[in-house]
Amino acid sequence: MRRFFAPLLALGLAVAGNARAEDTLSPLHFQSDGPLGSIDKAAAQRGFLVYQTVCAACHSANALHYRDLEALGLTPDQMAGVAAGVKLADGSAATLDSPFKDPAMPASAFGGALPPDLSSIAAQRPGGAQYIYALLTGYATAPDGVTMLPGHFYNKAFPGEQVAMPPVLRDNAVTYADGTAATQSQEAADVAEFLTWAADPNLSTRHQIGLRAVIFFAFLGIVAVISKRRIWREGR
């Protein structure tokens, strides 16, 4: 029941055009970090490409719909193109829910490990985007003295350091339409930004409203203090 997602490679990035991404890898930082952070739409679009091409073979994103991609800057035509380009193995249309229609199938096929739904993974895991990046780039050969469980891979970012997910990201696993070099780290950072958006689609709006609310109430507080003092002084 794997999903195939080839035609997206032709999808032009609506936001970034042909500009290459700025270097966010050294040192690693995300535009969504911090109290005034916002979603980097170009990175999230690239992350969606990585998700659809690589992650979606095993992981669902139940809370997402193709129409949500409008928030990342895609036009309705582009979204329709994306949705039309996703096919199940038998050629039928695929949604973003689980690629495994039999819930027992993934656990039996992957050594008992169920691929978790990715729609809110950035909110569930401590560290969010940083953790996702560290996990996706944290694969290494197991040090001497570590006995690996069957079907597991050594990953220094995963709690317990043994993860059932194989290392799936490699250089040029996707081709970015905006010309960004698709290194493994770049793909990991982009998919981390995409999953941050998926877990918190209103992050940018929330921070914008919050900044305005704080400024408004700070001024209101100053005005209220002045008026209170004046009223109480005149009352004496």
Binding site: G210, A213, V214, F217, G221, A224
Partner: peptide, 18 residues
């Protein structure tokens, strides 16, 4: 009360939005 409410709303906004 208006002063208290404004300060409270300020703290509440920081918590709710950030």
């Amino acid at each position: 009360y208006l002063v208290a409410l404004a300060v409270f709303a300020l703290i509440f906004s920081v918590l709710a939005f950030f």
